[in-house]
């Protein structure tokens, strides 16, 4: 029996993200389905699902960032929501207070968030594991405190009237237009994340995650690599925050809570830490389940108050995360890969 993928020596094809004609077909099919989805939703009068989709796309961008910092480089971050917050507020201040155009403010807001990430990374240079997590947690509260207490961010009231972007004269105002804009950003972020895994820096991240000391002997400056991991992760988070701010046209502190940080981590872990595909899968899985549970809760199908169903959702996710960490630490993506491998080998071995 010929075992597929065992002795492929065509490096060029191996390097490509999409390696075969069949793979191209699958990607084209998936993208066209995603492009058709909003029209199907409109046709079936399910437009509230479009809002859900848009937030899911934003979350994917944010969690991809966390996956770089924590999943790839192994720097446990409990403060990822702070970067999302920073990106959102930066865009708000630039557009509302300083009157910048959206497309001018977006890259600067993203970059500022990245720089915030770089700064958070500095204490991590001398710390390992859990202590890094505590630093990032502290950073979250510091940035929240600062934003609440300075004037330019609008304090507890936040900022309202954040402008929507124009693309080629087209105002991105409706949910459906936002969907396409966010889809483009999301696909670009996925590409960047995959690119990272096929570059020297991505492998340096994996190496320091697995063994800082041995990584140094590969010639990797561990400290610099950690700072870069925080920087890139925060870039993604900042981009998500900035887009989010414009999408909902306001920024308020309760948009970005410590719970979001925890959710991001949960999504990444359940999907498969370190894997781009896993991260996307995790975000979709968790958001979809949570949406379904909320729908059931508010539909009155079960005789419980909607408040109670929200808490039950939390409890269910808590249990899910614990179960995944204990029994499937590499997440949904590893389960999928195992299934695929077994299918290929069938009926030989398991």
């Amino acid at each position: 029996m010929r075992r597929r993928g065992k002795s492929r020596t065509d490096f060029v094809r191996d390097l490509a993200i999409i390696g075969s004609g069949r793979h191209w077909l699958a990607v084209a099919l998936a993208l066209s389905l995603l492009a058709l989805l909003p029209f199907v939703l409109r046709w079936t009068h399910n437009l509230n699902w479009l809002t859900f989709l848009n937030f899911t796309l934003l979350t994917v961008i944010a969690v991809l960032g966390l996956n770089i910092t924590t999943g790839m480089a192994g720097q446990l971050s409990l403060g990822h929501a702070a970067f999302v917050l920073a990106g959102g507020y930066a865009l708000g201040v630039f557009t509302v207070k300083l009157g910048w155009p959206f497309w001018g403010a977006l890259p600067v807001a993203t970059l500022l968030s990245g720089i915030a990430g770089f700064l958070v990374g500095i204490p991590a240079l001398r710390l390992r594991g859990f202590y890094v997590a505590v630093t990032t947690l502290a950073f979250f509260y510091i940035i929240q405190f600062v934003v609440r207490n300075i004037e330019i961010t609008g304090g507890i009231h936040g900022l309202i009237g954040i402008p929507y972007p124009y693309v080629g004269g087209l105002a991105i105002k409706s949910d459906i237009r936002w969907y396409f804009l966010l889809l483009v950003f999301c696909v670009l972020c996925i590409l960047a994340s995959v690119n990272l895994t096929r570059s020297r820096l991505g492998r340096a991240f994996l190496a320091i995650r697995d063994n800082e000391d041995a990584a140094a002997n590969l010639g990797i400056s561990v400290g610099l690599a950690k700072l870069r991991a925080f920087f890139i992760g925060a870039l993604f988070g900042g981009l998500a925050g900035a887009l989010w701010a414009s999408y909902v046209s306001v920024v308020k502190l309760d948009q970005f809570t410590i719970w979001d940080s925890i959710w991001y981590l949960g999504m990444m872990v359940i999907g498969g830490a370190g894997s781009t595909a896993g991260t996307v899968l995790g975000v979709i899985a968790l958001r979809l389940t949570s949406q379904v549970l909320h729908s059931i809760g508010s539909s009155g199908l079960i005789p419980l108050s909607s408040n109670l169903t929200i808490y039950m959702t939390y409890a269910i996710f808590g249990i899910a995360i614990i179960l995944f960490i204990s029994f499937r630490p590499f997440g949904l993506i590893a389960m999928w890969q195992k299934l695929k491998a077994n299918y290929k080998r069938w009926p030989f071995g398991t």
């Binding site: 960047a192 690119n195 990272l196 570059s199 020297r200 820096l201 991505g202 492998r203 340096a204 994996l206 190496a207 995650r209 697995d210 990584a215 590969l218 010639g219 990797i220 870069r228 890139i232 370190g274």
Partner: peptide
């Protein structure tokens, strides 16, 4: 947790110069 090929490719770290942006 690294795969064989990734480890060897990481071994080439010092022979490559790709910057952060080029990598992304």
């Amino acid at each position: 947790h690294m795969k064989g090929l990734d480890i060897l490719m990481a071994g080439r770290y010092l022979h490559t110069r790709t910057s952060l942006l080029e990598g992304l």
